[in-house]
Design a protein around this nucleic acid. Structure first.
Length: 939
RNA sequence: GCCCGGGUGGCGGAAUAGGCAGACGCGGAGGACUCAAAAUCCUUUGCCCUCACGGGCGUGCGGGUUCGAUUCCCGCCCCGGGCACCA
């Protein structure tokens, strides 16, 4: 493909790459100088000019902010950014007060790893990377309110991240109220004796009034939404840090870096996200998100409703969780996980050796191994029997690794007739299978478990009978009976675990927490915020490939920082600082709130500004950002965490919105061809040539597949290059033209020229290429041109509203082609040219501004009214309609647009071709739909 | 295995309260301009048969409903993504 050139024999005023770049740079400077995209707040530092827009509807349009990568942007990155910019520009032109900006998620592993790789301090690399990305984004003409831009590593930003953490630390979840409340209220209720410590928070078991100060602190700490706990965590020696469940892949490796992850008990900071499990599921109903993302969140939270049932054994009561209490009469054996605390007590002397060996073998194998060995059922009989509470039957208790300690109670009742896993195990160990749900499967013995619906059978004792009842009825009946007997209780179980929130890395927010002599964590006073991340020369984490290594937070190496003298109300003391840091998700949990009030020094956001931009808009609305665009990869990470933090802030009265992101839109990916040589290594994509349907690099054939775009695959295309070859407007147009925003599309550099030509044609309608003089006229447009214009306006608006910018661009192109043909010698009426420039403005803002100004309009068009279609021009006087015979189109007729059925039929019969076909045939039926078609059924 | 998406020309994609399939762009072919090329512009381009006129076939596959199905219903196939021994 040849480069566009601007050699001397070309028209002096053609819209070429050089001219495009000149126009773009000029308008970008002007937008910035004039503060074109500044959106006023109701109150505070950014309130200037609010009165003028106070009566407009507001819109908050947001992108998932990037982490400042050192690699720079490729053309895939800005797809979503361009999309939101187009939409935001359209909203401004349709009378909205629009807030739209961009920031940087600059703490965390990726930034730190880049710094380590380049042997530079992350502060330096982060700032350098941000600068480069800003430059690249600025060149695309994205209309941001730059006053609002924040980076999560700004001291003034993470000061408030720490403040919000203290809010979380300072609250507990009141189960009765179903919401978080300040810990001070908990203490007051404990003091007043109106509340007892929650289960598991008071190890001494003494009355609150009898506890000493340290014991009380321990009890209260056990209630907090942020708490320290010794629990099995994901230890990743390769990264030198622990990770959240959400950061570990299904095959037990770190999402970042692909290092092995080991389950190990460690004392770490946890956030009590499980308290919000129900609300995180139920409030999905408030959100305009795709079903795909909602179901991923539901799946991750994993709510299942069932019952705890207690079986008696010689080793004591054994409690199981089941979602099918209706099948209790079919329980023929039990299984406990190898890690279950009762394993030892249940094991009889004869079975001791076999059980020990099995448990030891299970312990040696990681979760990964257990899974990779497929679903072959293994296990060992403990020698003990348990008594089924519903029928008194004695059933054997096994140890087997298909039961996981981490879910439910780590023990199950096995109903092989109605659970496939239990069925498989029963087959392997020759255990009884007792059907208790009628199934259509008549095989005897059963071939597989029946897990479908049906009525209960064989399910009665002296006091209760489930027989004949449906699954749902039987569940309710048996739970009631179990509860009455005190051997079971209805319960809801979740897969979601609390969020492991501490990391043993340097580049993150320090915890505003200190420890006194009693070892209990205490909050740093908010007056001490921000607690700055101390500078370090050697900030590298302690990594290893030893599973048994210990986490060593880098901040612990700065002894002068790790202790501090404070007076927290008990007189001056020396305290030990928390030396872990927060995970990279912390900043992104609330950045959308800071954009709204970035310079506020009194609070993280003024409530009035939050209410205006994010508050509920109608009855039953949960509020939130009006449009949030980002990749689907954050379905259960950022999007779940941010919802959780937002709900805590809502409960504490800091925000008026229940949800942070009302509407979520997942943009697709830009894919690119990857070319590989015969060894499978990628070769530079831009040096591959196509010949006779095969692809060659350096004279040798290479394979081609569609994949991600990136440096490692040698197929990255930089937006800077496209701006130089065609200009930013062409790039924007091309990216938006590839298809609906939520769809992935392959990048094709050769196709970019199509949009370049469209812009050149539009330019030529306005400007004489040779002289640079205006070509528009003051003539009246023809009726046809006027109708074409208004049909275009209606269609462009439609595409904008539905985020299908590709259709808007297609219709603008159609209008352009029409005008080129209708006015071959120039003279497009100004009354058509002006709306055309405005229609173009959201997608190609620079050239649109330039044309608008060349039409003699002063100032930017950013707030001009978007053209409106005149209804009367959308209906045609006459229309061409198809006439079909037996469903096959045979002719076309032109009739009045409002012609009735009878007139249609008459016109169709009058057509020569139709008449010939109908001649001599029996017309059985005539369907004439006004405005649509006519069909003759003959035969 | 379960849950979400999605299958339309050589390519990206338009069009569905059921009514002219393939808008618009790329690519291909032909032409204008040029000494020549590039750039730009114009014409043409779903597939098959035919010199042509014209005809046949076409929205993953097989059925169904209907005057009429890319669109609605039933049953499959394929591709992409997520979850997965979660009791």
């Amino acid at each position: 493909m040849a480069e566009p050139t601007s050699s001397a024999d070309l028209p002096q005023h053609r819209y070429d790459a050089a001219l495009a770049q000149e126009i773009e740079a000029r308008w970008q400077e002007r937008w910035e100088a004039e503060g074109t995209f500044h959106a006023p707040n109701p109150v505070g530092d950014l309130a200037d000019g609010f009165d003028a827009v106070a009566d407009r509807p507001k819109q908050y349009v947001l992108d998932m902010f990037p982490y400042p990568s050192g690699a720079g942007l490729h053309v895939g990155h800005p797809l979503g950014y361009i999309g939101t910019d187009v939409f935001a520009r359209y909203l401004r032109m349709t009378g909205h007060n629009v807030v739209h900006t961009m920031g940087y998620d600059s703490f965390g592993l990726p930034a730190e790893q880049y710094a380590l790789a380049t042997n530079t301090h992350p502060r330096v690399t982060t700032e350098r990377n941000i600068e480069n990305m800003e430059r690249q984004l600025r060149r695309l003409g994205l209309g941001y309110d730059r006053r609002r831009s924040v980076s999560t590593t700004d001291e003034d930003f993470y000061r408030w991240t720490q403040w919000i953490f203290l809010q979380i630390f300072g609250s507990w979840f009141d189960e009765t109220a179903g919401r978080a409340r300040p810990v001070a209220e908990l203490e007051a209720e404990l003091d007043a004796g109106t509340r007892d410590p929650a289960a598991g928070t008071n190890p001494s078991g003494k009355r609150w009034a009898d506890l000493d100060a340290t014991e009380r602190r321990h009890v209260v700490n056990g209630h907090r939404l942020a708490y320290l706990a010794e629990v099995p965590v994901n230890w990743c020696p390769g990264l030198g840090t622990v990770l959240a469940n959400e950061e570990v892949t299904a095959d037990g490796r770190s999402e970042r870096g692909n290092f092995p992850v080991y389950r190990r008990p460690m004392k770490q900071w946890m956030l009590r996200i499980t308290a919000y499990a129900d609300r995180l599921i139920d409030d999905l109903d408030l959100l305009d998100w795709t079903e795909a993302i909602k179901s991923q969140q539901r799946n991750w939270i994993g709510r299942s409703t069932g019952a705890d049932v207690t079986f008696s054994t010689d080793a004591g009561p054994l409690t199981v969780f089941t979602t099918r209490p209706d099948t209790l009469f079919g329980a023929t054996y039990m299984v406990v996980a190898p890690e279950h605390p009762l394993v030892g007590a249940l094991t009889t002397p004869e079975q001791q050796a076999a059980v020990d060996e099995y448990v030891a073998a299970a312990a040696r194998r990681s979760d990964l191994d257990r899974q990779s060995e497929g679903k072959e059922k293994t296990g060992v009989f403990t020698g003990s029997l348990a008594t089924n509470p519903v029928n008194g039957e004695s059933i054997p208790v096994y140890v087997a690794d298909y039961v996981l300690m981490g879910y439910g109670t780590g023990a199950i009742m096995a109903v092989p007739a109605h659970d496939q896993r239990d069925f498989d195990f029963a087959r392997a160990f020759d255990l009884r299978v007792v059907p208790v749900i009628a199934s259509p499967d008549e095989h005897e013995p059963l071939e597989q478990a029946w897990t479908g619906d049906g009525v209960a059978i064989n399910s009665a004792n002296a006091e209760v009978s489930l027989d004949g009842r449906s699954v749902a009825e039987a569940k309710a009946t048996i739970i009631e009976w179990l509860e009455g007997k005190g051997v079971g209780t209805g319960r809801v179980q979740y897969k979601l675990r609390d969020w492991l929130f501490s990391r043993q890395r340097y580049w993150g927010e320090p915890f505003p927490i200190v420890f006194g002599d009693d070892g209990e964590p205490q909050a740093l006073p908010t007056s001490e915020l921000p607690l700055l991340l101390p500078p370090m020369e050697d900030f590298s984490p302690t990594t290893s490939n030893d599973e048994d290594s210990e986490p060593e937070p880098p901040l612990g190496r700065i002894t002068e920082w790790a202790t501090v003298d404070l007076d927290l109300g008990d007189g001056p003391q020396t305290y030990r600082r928390e030396v872990n840091t927060m995970p990279n998700w912390a900043g992104s949990c609330w950045y959308e709130l800071r954009y709204l009030d970035p310079t506020n020094h009194e609070s993280f956001v003024d409530p009035e500004n939050e209410r205006y931009w994010m508050g509920p808009q109608f009855e039953g609305d949960g509020g939130g950002v009006d449009l949030y665009v980002g990749g689907v990869e954050h379905a259960v990470l950022h999007l779940l965490y941010a919802r959780f933090w937002h709900k805590v802030l809502f409960d504490l009265g800091h925000v008026s919105s229940k949800e942070p992101f009302r509407r979520l839109f997942n943009q697709g990916m830009i894919q690119a061809h990857v070319y590989r040589d015969d060894r499978g290594f990628p070769v530079p994509a831009d040096e591959v040539v196509e010949a006779d349907g095969t692809y060659q690099y350096d004279g040798k054939a290479v394979s081609r597949e569609l994949g991600k775009m990136g440096k490692s695959l040698k197929n990255a295309v930089a937006p800077d290059d496209m701006c130089e070859r065609y200009g930013a407007d062409t790039l924007r147009l091309y990216e938006m033209y590839g298809g609906p925003l939520d769809q992935s599309r392959p990048w094709d550099t050769t196709a970019v020229v199509g949009m370049y030509r469209v812009l050149q044609r539009i330019w030529r309608l306005f400007v004489d290429e040779d002289e640079g003089t205006p070509r528009v006229s003051d003539h009246q447009p023809s009726d046809e041109t006027l109708r074409t214009l208004h049909r275009t306006i209606a269609a462009v608006r439609d595409g904008m509203e539905s985020l299908r910018f590709n259709t808007s661009i297609a219709r603008i192109t159609e209008l352009t082609n029409h005008l080129t043909a209708a006015y071959p010698d120039g003279g497009v009426p100004r009354s058509v040219a002006e709306p055309l420039a405005l229609l173009l403005a959201p997608v190609a803002p620079h050239i649109a501004e330039e044309l608008w100004s060349r039409l003699g309009n002063p100032g930017s068009l950013a707030y001009q009214d978007f053209p409106e279609a005149r209804e009367d021009l959308l209906v045609e006087a006459s229309v061409e309609l198809p006439v079909s015979v037996n469903g096959k189109v045979k002719a076309r007729i032109i009739v009045e647009a409002d012609a009735g059925a009878a007139a249609l039929e008459a016109a169709a019969r009058a057509d020569d071709k139709v008449a010939a076909l109908l001649d001599g045939a029996t017309v059985r039926k005539v369907i004439a739909v006004p405005g649509k078609m006519v069909n003759f059924v003959i035969g």
